[in-house]
Computed example of a mutant assay.
Amino acid sequence: MVGTIDIMLPHYGDTALMQLAVRSVLAQTDPDWRLTVVDDGQEEGVPQWFAALGDDRVRYQRNERNLGITGNFRKCVELVEAEYFTMLGSDDLLLPNYVATLRAAITARPKAAMYQPGVQVIDENGAVCSSLVDEVKRRLYAPRTDGRRTLSGEDLAANLLAGNWLYFPSIAWRSDIVKEVNFREDLSVIQDLALVVELIRRGEELVVDPAVCFQYRRHSGSLSASEAGTGKRFAEARRFFLETAETMQAQGWPKAARAARRHLSMRLHALTMVPGALRKRQTSTVRTLLSYALGKNQHSTPTGP
């Protein structure tokens, strides 16, 4: 039987959006959850707001110093106590059926390490929307399924390295294996994919449940969007994919190694950023984006076809 599910919320940024995220947890139809908020900011009034909630399932703490996104993720993992947890984004929302949906998926497929439920995408104002990125995820990369489906092995690794269709903040994780691996300290915007690929490499399974229970917010103010705009995201991605290609080849997974070397969807994403950088006259960013999109300067030792 699945016990309490830990909901970890690493916070930095918009206080109003974070409060909406917390209220979406409080509105769950399944009450067996525990929310832990780890605040990496210094906004006034936030500790008092949490104290006024009066719900002993909600725990709040503020970091003495700023840890950064990956440091705060790692701290959240260390604080997990339950057998399963989720890492809620502070600008995302749970639909009321989220905990119940994940509990049912875990009960039905208890051997997996990751559970990806159905997701709606919303904009800055909370309206359900769509974007080119999400349409590509859905149409080209995400598996077709009418019910729960378990995925694993080289095929899954190759699929995700070609185009990452997961929504990281919506995933429920098995705590023991994530605590063993944790997030890589040297990554800041692609650390979620790195964790997933490492779990798959270790033989862990991913369960996909199409029941929609999560709202993922896309807006221009996100860390990944801002770092994509400067080209930093893609410099980090290039390093990760080339390293991963070598790891997959050593694993005996040539299909996954080829997908990592090509990382086509990420390169196409970089190409879509070029017009915006041109409009802003960001010459150096344009050069970085084009270099990444066209596959220039990608040095790695040939390890297979």
Rank of each mutant, 00 (worst) to 15 (best):
D6Q: 08
L9F: 11
H11W: 08
D14K: 09
T15P: 02
V22F: 10
V22C: 04
R23D: 12
D30R: 07
P31W: 06
D32T: 10
L35P: 06
L35S: 10
T36L: 14
T36Y: 11
D40N: 12
Q42M: 08
V46E: 05
Q48S: 05
G54D: 02
D55R: 00
D55K: 04
D56A: 07
Q61M: 15
Q61G: 13
R65W: 11
R74S: 09
C76M: 15
C76I: 02
V77S: 07
V80C: 12
L93A: 01
L94N: 09
L95K: 13
V99E: 06
V99I: 14
A104C: 02
A105V: 02
I106F: 00
Q120G: 04
Q120L: 14
N125T: 15
D134W: 13
E135T: 15
K137E: 13
Y141Q: 12
P143D: 14
R144N: 14
L151W: 01
G153N: 06
E154I: 03
D155A: 14
W165H: 15
Y167S: 10
A172D: 08
A172K: 01
W173C: 01
I190G: 02
L199Y: 11
I200V: 15
R201V: 05
L206S: 06
V208M: 11
D209M: 04
P210D: 02
R218N: 13
A225C: 03
E227Q: 15
A228K: 08
T230L: 13
K232A: 15
F234G: 12
A235L: 14
R238P: 00
T244V: 03
T244E: 13
R261G: 00
R261C: 05
R261M: 02
L264R: 02
R267H: 00
L271D: 09
V274N: 04
R279L: 08
T283Q: 13
S284I: 01
S284R: 05
V286Y: 02
V286M: 09
A293Y: 03
A293V: 06
L294H: 06
G295F: 01
K296C: 03
P302I: 09
